[in-house]
């Protein structure tokens, strides 16, 4: 079942005795679990009728004992098991859950959360047959604006479609970050009924700044989409393209130094000192370095030089120059920029 289908069930409060939430979007998982808890167990009864346990810290038999107990105060008991996959490593634990699943207690909602379910193995094979499975996967790009609009509606206001798109552009697809920004926007707009694009720019544009280090990390990971998004935010926030070029040149110089096999054989502290970074970041830089060939690095320097020249000697839109630069740095071809300068 998708999260959307779960929301329809949630409206009717028709939850299954056993549910498994899984997937990468932990914001939806948390919200789904909260929905069940809030729908089923009254606030005053939560001290008695709600058990929240961590699969890495409890025994399977304790979870089954909780689930097999009748509610003490209200009509239902909810037992939430986080990191469920860590609870069911042993054969005994698998058998216990199989036994409980074959006859779950109707007054209990057993809510399991797993980030890594393996549906080829027990107890997940049993859960597939006997529990409600709710997959919480990250939303696609085109789904995020409508999710924002829906979220704003749930929070009691409306959002202009352009405001939704702008918020996505600023924050990305992380639902948790979007929710955090929405809460700020709500405080900012006060009694206004609709969120307008300028509200998003005023609140998110001002507060959610990126640094060149975040940019260099996504460039190092060769993630063009995220790189362009962060670059866009930095330029909109007024950061100087020349300064970004200086910092990216420094970053590629570090990668260039790391391509020296002799240096790579040195002790870690020495490598870190040589390239001028904290030893804490060395592992990350080494990982970045292995993704860039010498030829790629040479082209990166050409592109950085070309971009710097274009910014200083032409009237080309700096935004365009920087976009081309980031694309060149990631793809390893300097032509998009050098063709314009003749370098």
């Amino acid at each position: 079942m998708t999260y959307g289908e779960f929301q329809q069930i949630a409206q009717k409060k028709a939850f299954a005795p056993v549910s498994l939430f899984y997937g990468e979007e932990d914001f939806l998982i948390e919200e789904g679990v909260r929905t069940i808890v809030e729908s089923v167990v009254d606030v005053s009864a939560r001290g008695f009728d709600l058990d929240v346990v961590d699969g890495s810290k409890v025994e399977a038999r304790d979870v089954i004992a909780h689930a097999s107990s009748f509610p003490m105060m209200g009509a239902k008991r909810v037992v939430v098991v986080k990191e469920f996959e860590k609870l069911v490593g042993s054969e005994t634990a698998k058998e216990l859950f199989a036994s409980y699943l074959s006859n779950p207690l109707s007054s209990t909602h057993l809510v399991l959360v797993s980030s890594e379910p393996d549906f080829r193995r027990k107890p997940f094979t049993d859960l597939k047959k006997k529990a409600e499975l709710i997959e919480c996967k990250p939303l696609y790009d085109n789904q995020v604006p409508s999710w924002i609009a829906q979220r704003v509606r749930l929070m009691g206001k409306e959002a202009h479609p352009e405001a939704c798109r702008l918020l996505q552009a600023y924050v990305g697809n992380s639902l948790r970050s979007i929710q955090n920004e929405l809460e700020k926007i709500f405080i900012f707009i006060g009694d206004k009924k609709e969120i307008m694009p300028e509200d998003v720019t005023s609140v998110v544009g001002a507060t959610k700044g990126f640094t060149v280090f975040e940019l260099q990390n996504v460039v190092g990971r060769k993630d063009p989409k995220e790189s362009l998004r962060i670059l866009e935010r930095m330029i909109v926030a007024g950061q100087s393209p020349q300064m970004i070029i200086v910092m990216l040149t420094r970053f590629f110089t570090q990668l260039w130094k790391l391509s020296d096999p002799k240096l790579r054989r040195s002790p870690e502290a020495e490598i870190a000192r040589e390239i001028g970074i904290s030893p804490y970041f060395l592992k990350q830089h080494l990982a970045f370095s292995s993704g860039f060939s010498v030829e790629h690095l040479e082209n990166a320097f050409k592109a950085l030089l070309a971009a710097d020249t274009l910014l200083k000697s032409t009237s080309l839109d700096p935004h365009l120059v920087m976009d081309l630069l980031v694309v060149s740095l990631i793809s390893g071809t300097a032509e998009p920029l050098t063709n314009r300068t003749g370098i």
Partner: peptide
């Protein structure tokens, strides 16, 4: 004391 379900 809370009772337990029988036959579990």
């Amino acid at each position: 004391v809370m009772p337990m379900r029988l036959n579990v």
